[in-house]
Simulated scan of single mutants.
Amino acid sequence: MEQKTRKKRKLGSYPFVSVTLSITLALFVIGLFGMLALHASKLTTVIQENIELQVFLNKQITSSEISKINRTIGSKPFVLKKDDAPVIRMVTKEEAAEQFIKDTGEDFTEFLGDNPLRDVLIVNINPGHQASDSLKMIKADIEKIGGVYEVSYVESLVESINENLTKIGLILVGFFLILLLVVVILINNTIKLALFSQRFLIRSMQLVGATAGFIRGPFLKRSVWYGLLAGTFASLMLFFLMTYANTRIEDLSQLQDIQSLAILFGSIIVLGMMVGFLSTYRAVRKYLKLSLDELY
Protein backbone atom coordinates (compact mmCIF):
# COMPACT_ATOMS: atom_id res chain seq x y z
CA MET A 1 0.00 0.00 0.00
CA GLU A 2 1.49 3.25 -1.14
CA GLN A 3 1.85 5.76 1.63
CA LYS A 4 2.07 9.47 0.98
CA THR A 5 4.09 11.32 3.52
CA ARG A 6 3.29 14.89 4.22
CA LYS A 7 5.52 17.31 6.04
CA LYS A 8 4.00 18.17 9.37
CA ARG A 9 3.37 21.81 10.04
CA LYS A 10 4.62 23.10 13.34
CA LEU A 11 2.66 25.76 15.18
CA GLY A 12 4.37 29.10 14.80
CA SER A 13 6.49 28.14 11.82
CA TYR A 14 6.33 30.03 8.56
CA PRO A 15 8.81 30.59 5.68
CA PHE A 16 12.16 31.56 7.18
CA VAL A 17 14.12 32.66 4.11
CA SER A 18 11.43 34.72 2.37
CA VAL A 19 10.22 36.48 5.53
CA THR A 20 13.73 37.23 6.84
CA LEU A 21 14.92 38.41 3.42
CA SER A 22 11.94 40.71 2.95
CA ILE A 23 12.30 42.26 6.40
CA THR A 24 16.08 42.60 5.94
CA LEU A 25 15.70 44.49 2.65
CA ALA A 26 13.03 46.76 4.12
CA LEU A 27 15.20 47.55 7.15
CA PHE A 28 18.25 48.03 4.90
CA VAL A 29 16.42 50.70 2.89
CA ILE A 30 15.36 52.67 5.95
CA GLY A 31 18.82 52.19 7.48
CA LEU A 32 20.43 53.50 4.31
CA PHE A 33 18.27 56.61 4.48
CA GLY A 34 19.17 56.95 8.15
CA MET A 35 22.87 56.86 7.28
CA LEU A 36 22.36 59.53 4.64
CA ALA A 37 20.51 61.66 7.18
CA LEU A 38 23.34 61.27 9.72
CA HIS A 39 25.93 62.27 7.12
CA ALA A 40 23.79 65.24 6.09
CA SER A 41 23.41 66.29 9.73
CA LYS A 42 27.16 66.10 10.29
CA LEU A 43 27.80 68.04 7.09
CA THR A 44 25.33 70.68 8.27
CA THR A 45 27.24 70.99 11.54
CA VAL A 46 30.54 71.34 9.68
CA ILE A 47 29.07 74.09 7.47
CA GLN A 48 27.66 75.96 10.46
CA GLU A 49 30.91 75.67 12.39
CA ASN A 50 32.73 77.36 9.51
CA ILE A 51 30.65 80.53 9.67
CA GLU A 52 33.12 83.20 10.73
CA LEU A 53 33.37 86.81 11.84
CA GLN A 54 36.35 88.92 10.83
CA VAL A 55 37.45 91.21 13.63
CA PHE A 56 39.72 93.94 12.22
CA LEU A 57 42.04 95.51 14.79
CA ASN A 58 43.41 99.03 15.08
CA LYS A 59 46.76 99.81 13.52
CA GLN A 60 49.83 100.10 15.74
CA ILE A 61 48.23 97.75 18.26
CA THR A 62 50.58 95.87 20.56
CA SER A 63 50.79 92.10 20.96
CA SER A 64 49.61 92.33 24.59
CA GLU A 65 46.52 94.25 23.51
CA ILE A 66 45.83 91.64 20.83
CA SER A 67 46.11 88.86 23.43
CA LYS A 68 43.70 90.74 25.71
CA ILE A 69 41.15 91.16 22.89
CA ASN A 70 41.55 87.47 22.02
CA ARG A 71 40.84 86.43 25.61
CA THR A 72 37.88 88.80 25.90
CA ILE A 73 36.24 87.48 22.73
CA GLY A 74 37.10 83.88 23.63
CA SER A 75 35.18 84.17 26.90
CA LYS A 76 31.95 85.07 25.09
CA PRO A 77 29.25 82.35 24.90
CA PHE A 78 28.69 82.87 21.17
CA VAL A 79 32.20 81.72 20.25
CA LEU A 80 32.51 78.13 18.99
CA LYS A 81 34.57 75.97 21.34
CA LYS A 82 36.34 72.70 20.61
CA ASP A 83 38.03 70.77 23.40
CA ASP A 84 37.02 73.65 25.72
CA ALA A 85 39.14 76.07 23.67
CA PRO A 86 37.64 78.96 21.64
CA VAL A 87 38.08 78.61 17.88
CA ILE A 88 39.83 81.90 17.09
CA ARG A 89 42.78 82.33 14.78
CA MET A 90 45.01 85.30 14.08
CA VAL A 91 45.88 86.57 10.61
CA THR A 92 48.54 89.27 10.73
CA LYS A 93 48.67 92.06 8.16
CA GLU A 94 51.92 90.59 6.80
CA GLU A 95 50.25 87.20 6.26
CA ALA A 96 47.26 88.90 4.63
CA ALA A 97 49.52 90.87 2.29
CA GLU A 98 51.45 87.74 1.35
CA GLN A 99 48.24 85.88 0.56
CA PHE A 100 46.90 88.82 -1.50
CA ILE A 101 50.09 88.97 -3.55
CA LYS A 102 49.96 85.21 -4.07
CA ASP A 103 46.32 85.32 -5.24
CA THR A 104 46.59 88.39 -7.53
CA GLY A 105 50.24 88.31 -8.55
CA GLU A 106 50.56 92.03 -7.78
CA ASP A 107 52.69 93.52 -4.99
CA PHE A 108 50.72 96.57 -3.84
CA THR A 109 53.39 97.52 -1.30
CA GLU A 110 55.78 98.51 -4.13
CA PHE A 111 53.70 101.52 -5.23
CA LEU A 112 52.00 102.27 -1.90
CA GLY A 113 55.21 102.07 0.08
CA ASP A 114 53.31 100.65 3.06
CA ASN A 115 51.01 97.79 4.05
CA PRO A 116 47.49 99.26 4.52
CA LEU A 117 46.01 95.99 5.76
CA ARG A 118 45.12 95.32 9.37
CA ASP A 119 45.62 92.42 11.76
CA VAL A 120 42.49 90.27 11.85
CA LEU A 121 41.00 87.82 14.33
CA ILE A 122 38.89 85.13 12.64
CA VAL A 123 36.17 84.06 15.07
CA ASN A 124 34.04 80.94 14.49
CA ILE A 125 30.48 81.33 15.77
CA ASN A 126 28.53 78.72 17.71
CA PRO A 127 25.66 77.31 15.56
CA GLY A 128 23.18 78.29 18.25
CA HIS A 129 23.99 81.99 17.76
CA GLN A 130 23.87 82.21 13.97
CA ALA A 131 20.48 83.81 13.47
CA SER A 132 20.59 87.18 11.71
CA ASP A 133 19.51 89.14 14.79
CA SER A 134 22.05 87.31 16.97
CA LEU A 135 24.90 88.02 14.57
CA LYS A 136 24.04 91.72 14.51
CA MET A 137 24.11 91.82 18.32
CA ILE A 138 27.41 89.90 18.35
CA LYS A 139 28.89 92.36 15.84
CA ALA A 140 27.87 95.34 17.98
CA ASP A 141 29.17 93.66 21.15
CA ILE A 142 32.62 92.96 19.71
CA GLU A 143 32.95 96.44 18.20
CA LYS A 144 32.63 97.89 21.74
CA ILE A 145 35.87 96.19 22.78
CA GLY A 146 38.84 98.57 22.89
CA GLY A 147 41.30 98.06 20.04
CA VAL A 148 38.70 96.69 17.63
CA TYR A 149 38.35 98.72 14.45
CA GLU A 150 35.52 96.86 12.69
CA VAL A 151 33.66 93.54 12.61
CA SER A 152 32.64 92.09 9.27
CA TYR A 153 30.76 89.04 7.96
CA VAL A 154 28.88 88.15 4.77
CA GLU A 155 25.31 88.64 5.97
CA SER A 156 23.59 87.44 2.79
CA LEU A 157 25.65 84.23 2.78
CA VAL A 158 24.77 83.42 6.39
CA GLU A 159 21.05 84.00 5.77
CA SER A 160 21.16 81.83 2.64
CA ILE A 161 22.91 78.99 4.49
CA ASN A 162 20.41 79.07 7.37
CA GLU A 163 17.39 79.08 5.03
CA ASN A 164 18.71 76.23 2.88
CA LEU A 165 19.65 74.09 5.88
CA THR A 166 16.16 74.55 7.33
CA LYS A 167 14.52 73.52 4.04
CA ILE A 168 16.77 70.48 3.67
CA GLY A 169 16.02 69.41 7.25
CA LEU A 170 12.24 69.58 6.68
CA ILE A 171 12.52 67.62 3.42
CA LEU A 172 14.60 64.89 5.08
CA VAL A 173 12.13 64.56 7.95
CA GLY A 174 9.24 64.28 5.49
CA PHE A 175 10.98 61.60 3.42
CA PHE A 176 11.92 59.68 6.55
CA LEU A 177 8.32 59.58 7.82
CA ILE A 178 7.02 58.43 4.43
CA LEU A 179 9.73 55.78 4.12
CA LEU A 180 9.11 54.56 7.66
CA LEU A 181 5.39 54.17 6.90
CA VAL A 182 6.16 52.24 3.69
CA VAL A 183 8.61 49.93 5.48
CA VAL A 184 6.15 49.20 8.30
CA ILE A 185 3.39 48.40 5.78
CA LEU A 186 5.75 46.19 3.75
CA ILE A 187 6.88 44.18 6.79
CA ASN A 188 3.29 43.91 8.02
CA ASN A 189 2.05 42.57 4.68
CA THR A 190 4.98 40.15 4.40
CA ILE A 191 4.22 38.59 7.78
CA LYS A 192 0.49 38.62 7.10
CA LEU A 193 0.99 36.67 3.86
CA ALA A 194 3.40 34.26 5.57
CA LEU A 195 0.83 33.50 8.26
CA PHE A 196 -1.89 32.93 5.67
CA SER A 197 -0.72 29.33 5.24
CA GLN A 198 -1.11 28.77 9.01
CA ARG A 199 -4.72 29.86 9.24
CA PHE A 200 -6.16 26.31 9.24
CA LEU A 201 -3.63 25.12 11.81
CA ILE A 202 -4.69 28.03 14.02
CA ARG A 203 -8.32 26.95 13.53
CA SER A 204 -7.48 23.35 14.41
CA MET A 205 -5.78 24.42 17.61
CA GLN A 206 -8.89 26.40 18.54
CA LEU A 207 -11.08 23.34 17.94
CA VAL A 208 -9.04 21.22 20.39
CA GLY A 209 -9.41 23.86 23.07
CA ALA A 210 -6.14 25.80 22.82
CA THR A 211 -6.34 29.32 24.27
CA ALA A 212 -5.55 32.41 22.20
CA GLY A 213 -2.43 33.07 24.26
CA PHE A 214 -1.16 29.52 23.74
CA ILE A 215 -1.64 29.83 19.98
CA ARG A 216 -0.09 33.28 19.71
CA GLY A 217 2.99 32.43 21.80
CA PRO A 218 5.03 30.43 19.22
CA PHE A 219 4.24 32.93 16.45
CA LEU A 220 5.28 35.94 18.54
CA LYS A 221 8.52 34.31 19.68
CA ARG A 222 9.44 33.41 16.12
CA SER A 223 8.56 36.88 14.85
CA VAL A 224 10.88 38.50 17.40
CA TRP A 225 13.65 36.09 16.40
CA TYR A 226 13.12 36.82 12.69
CA GLY A 227 13.13 40.58 13.40
CA LEU A 228 16.36 40.26 15.38
CA LEU A 229 18.05 38.33 12.56
CA ALA A 230 16.75 40.69 9.87
CA GLY A 231 17.87 43.77 11.81
CA THR A 232 21.32 42.25 12.36
CA PHE A 233 21.70 41.33 8.68
CA ALA A 234 20.58 44.82 7.61
CA SER A 235 23.04 46.45 10.02
CA LEU A 236 25.90 44.29 8.72
CA MET A 237 25.03 45.18 5.13
CA LEU A 238 25.02 48.87 6.01
CA PHE A 239 28.34 48.54 7.84
CA PHE A 240 30.05 46.87 4.88
CA LEU A 241 28.54 49.42 2.49
CA MET A 242 29.82 52.26 4.66
CA THR A 243 33.29 50.67 4.87
CA TYR A 244 33.41 50.35 1.08
CA ALA A 245 32.21 53.94 0.61
CA ASN A 246 34.98 55.18 2.92
CA THR A 247 37.57 53.61 0.63
CA ARG A 248 36.04 55.25 -2.45
CA ILE A 249 35.09 58.71 -1.17
CA GLU A 250 37.83 60.84 0.34
CA ASP A 251 37.25 62.30 3.83
CA LEU A 252 33.83 60.64 4.09
CA SER A 253 34.83 59.10 7.42
CA GLN A 254 35.10 62.61 8.90
CA LEU A 255 31.32 62.93 8.60
CA GLN A 256 30.74 59.73 10.59
CA ASP A 257 30.15 59.54 14.31
CA ILE A 258 30.60 56.07 15.83
CA GLN A 259 28.07 56.67 18.60
CA SER A 260 25.36 57.88 16.20
CA LEU A 261 25.96 54.94 13.86
CA ALA A 262 25.76 52.49 16.77
CA ILE A 263 22.42 54.03 17.80
CA LEU A 264 21.20 53.75 14.19
CA PHE A 265 22.15 50.06 13.92
CA GLY A 266 20.56 49.34 17.31
CA SER A 267 17.40 51.17 16.26
CA ILE A 268 17.17 49.09 13.08
CA ILE A 269 17.35 45.86 15.10
CA VAL A 270 14.75 47.09 17.61
CA LEU A 271 12.49 48.30 14.77
CA GLY A 272 12.65 44.88 13.10
CA MET A 273 11.71 43.12 16.34
CA MET A 274 8.92 45.56 17.22
CA VAL A 275 7.30 45.66 13.78
CA GLY A 276 7.61 41.86 13.45
CA PHE A 277 6.01 41.35 16.86
CA LEU A 278 3.13 43.80 16.33
CA SER A 279 2.43 42.62 12.77
CA THR A 280 2.37 38.98 13.87
CA TYR A 281 0.11 39.80 16.81
CA ARG A 282 -2.38 41.58 14.54
CA ALA A 283 -2.33 38.81 11.92
CA VAL A 284 -2.82 35.96 14.40
CA ARG A 285 -5.52 37.94 16.19
CA LYS A 286 -7.32 38.37 12.87
CA TYR A 287 -7.21 34.65 12.02
CA LEU A 288 -8.38 33.75 15.53
CA LYS A 289 -11.56 35.78 14.99
CA LEU A 290 -12.39 34.51 11.47
CA SER A 291 -15.08 31.92 10.95
CA LEU A 292 -14.43 28.73 8.99
CA ASP A 293 -16.15 30.14 5.89
CA GLU A 294 -14.04 33.28 6.07
CA LEU A 295 -10.85 31.22 6.35
CA TYR A 296 -11.64 29.65 2.98
Rank of each mutant, 00 (worst) to 15 (best):
L295S: 08
N189Y: 13
K68D: 13
L172W: 00
N70M: 04
T247N: 10
L180W: 06
R248G: 01
L27Q: 03
L121N: 00
L165N: 08
V182C: 08
E150H: 09
K10E: 08
A37T: 15
L295Q: 10
S156L: 07
R282W: 01
P218H: 01
Q206R: 03
A234H: 07
N164F: 10
A96V: 03
N189Q: 13
F175S: 09
L220S: 06
R282N: 06
F219D: 02
V183A: 12
L27E: 03
I61V: 13
I88H: 00
N189P: 00
A96Q: 14
A234N: 12
S253K: 10
R222E: 11
L43E: 04
S41H: 08
Q130S: 13
F196N: 14
I178F: 14
I88Q: 03
V79M: 00
S197C: 02
F219L: 13
R6I: 13
K221M: 06
L121I: 09
L295R: 12
N50L: 03
L252H: 08
L38C: 02
L21G: 06
S204D: 09
T5L: 15
Y287R: 03
G227L: 01
Q259V: 07
L241D: 06
Q198K: 15
G34S: 06
L135Q: 03
D133P: 05
I263N: 02
D114W: 09
I269F: 02
I23M: 13
